[in-house]
């Protein structure tokens, strides 16, 4: 009887670990971070953990120290956007599990809480990201006119992307739509020669789509020796770059610049 309770416990713990791992993978943590976090939690509960991390699935094997019970399972990880609030929350949780000896119930409750944490209000995101692109335009050497064009183009482009994501288009297509919308607006400036260097506005109006997290994670994965994951993430980043370029190229074609 006691044995079966213990078996349930192992299975439940394994499922929680998989859930945490797949959340980290979906929301932009690198492979080393996933391995370290899961190992930390498993160690706190006295289990051995072996882990296979890939971009779209996690495989996990845990056993307790005396090899009485083990648990194997595979879990698909769904691709999502970057959400550092969740990643940061999970990292803090893993430390507190170690120091405060949490029970499984507490962990499950905390995961639910972290998943329900709010995003920034949509209008704030739109305004601040547009401001970021305005800054990029300024760093390139654009003047007031170019900066305001970059601001407007980003605002519309990001809005288009959010709407496309809501309608669950393919993620790369979402980025293509956004890039096309932004460059169609900033392309008008080039077409009608507004400002001194309208091409600066054109070039910077799509920079908010740059896959910063996949590319940085790709390099850090490769440096850590998770070369397969690094290559996959790098390829993912490259396809995003290609989608951006495709949108730009289509605008160039439409306006015959």
């Amino acid at each position: 009887m006691e044995k079966s309770i213990h078996k349930d416990q192992v299975e439940r713990f394994g499922s929680i670990l998989l859930e945490i791992g797949s959340l980290l993978m979906s929301y932009g943590a690198n492979s080393m971070r996933i391995r370290v976090t899961l190992n930390r939690i498993a160690k706190a509960f006295g289990y051995n953990l072996e882990l296979l991390i890939t971009h779209r699935a996690l495989m996990l094997h845990i056993d307790d120290k005396d090899d009485q019970h083990s648990f194997n399972q595979l879990k698909r990880t769904s691709p999502h956007g970057v959400n550092f609030r969740l990643v940061s929350g999970i990292s803090n949780m893993s430390w507190r599990i170690v120091s405060e000896k949490w029970s499984l119930d507490e962990i499950e409750k905390e995961i639910e809480r972290l998943k329900s944490l709010p995003h920034y209000p949509r209008i704030i995101i739109l305004l601040l990201v547009s401001l970021a692109d305005l800054s990029f335009c300024r760093l390139f050497g654009g003047g007031m006119i170019e900066m305001s064009i970059a601001f407007g183009a980003t605002f519309v482009g990001l809005f288009v992307r959010q709407e496309a994501v809501k309608k669950t288009f393919n993620p790369y297509i979402c980025i293509f739509f956004a890039s096309l919308a932004s460059s169609l607006i900033s392309g008008l400036a080039v077409k009608f020669n507004l400002g001194d260097h309208p091409e600066y506005a054109f070039a910077t109006s799509v920079l908010y789509l740059i896959p910063g997290v996949p590319l940085v994670n790709s390099f850090s994965d490769i440096i850590d020796g998770n070369i397969m994951n690094g290559i996959v993430r790098g390829m993912h980043g490259m396809v995003i770059v290609l989608s951006i370029a495709l949108g730009l190229a289509l605008s160039l074609l439409i306006y015959q610049i």
Binding site: S88, Y120, L128, V129, L131, S135, Y208
Partner: peptide
């Protein structure tokens, strides 16, 4: 400013 924009996009705490 660029950092803040992306920070909000990445939903940092």
């Amino acid at each position: 400013l660029a950092s803040i924009g992306f920070a909000v996009l990445f939903n940092v705490p």
